[in-house]
Amino acid sequence: MDLTSKFTLNTSNYTNTLKMNDVISGNVPHTENVLYVPGIDKAAFMAALKALKENVSATVETTDEMIHTIDNGLAETNSNRFYRNGDAVKQVTNMNTLSSDMKGLMELFGQISEDRIAAAIDSYNSSLGALKRTTRKELLEDAAQEANGQKCKKTETSRAFYPNDGANHSYYNEEKNGTTKVVTKRYKSGVVSSDGKIEYITKVETYTWIQCSDNVSITEHRFREVGIDLPYSPSKIVDIDL
């Protein structure tokens, strides 16, 4: 199972920084990079580990049997040249060393608990998802706080409000004062004229105003409305459950 391609993203530099223990314990800074860290493909890893164990075990069993057959057979020759002289001893010893090494490898495999690893991967992926959600929201809030109050690049020459009736009436004060949760601008000018029904504002200066929502998608939309870049690259975000 080749997982290499999965780590060829630009996020590869961050993958190794998010150690399983750190993520599980919450010991990870809430930075943009966290959003780009993929979860661990548990199925792929477990399949690779299983395949390694099975393949090597089968090979070891076959190989060890052949080694012992040769060793015993050469011993039965009762021969210097085949078993007892210096070179023979060296060669037979090397062969038996392979047998010992394979035995050690199998013992090492025995120390690798598949169940424990599977549980750890589940925990990691769960913790990473929560971490991403928290971090994403925090990043948006921080970015909005930084953007709010900034003077907008575009200026408006005039703006009419309908304080007394009409569809926009309910928005008048909120919009005018910039207290509404849905507006993305604040107006900094007094009423210049009014015909009784309509107030006209001229010499309009607008300022960014992004009100964050618990729904990050809505917040991201407001960022786009005011032309402020998001504090991360949404397309790079993987494996996140909104």
Binding site: N16, I40, N55, I117
Partner: peptide
């Protein structure tokens, strides 16, 4: 087989 495994699987798990 060992080298392939070590180089193909998620290093985070190996680190665990």
């Amino acid at each position: 087989d060992i080298q392939h495994f070590l180089h193909s699987v998620d290093p985070r798990v190996l680190g665990y």
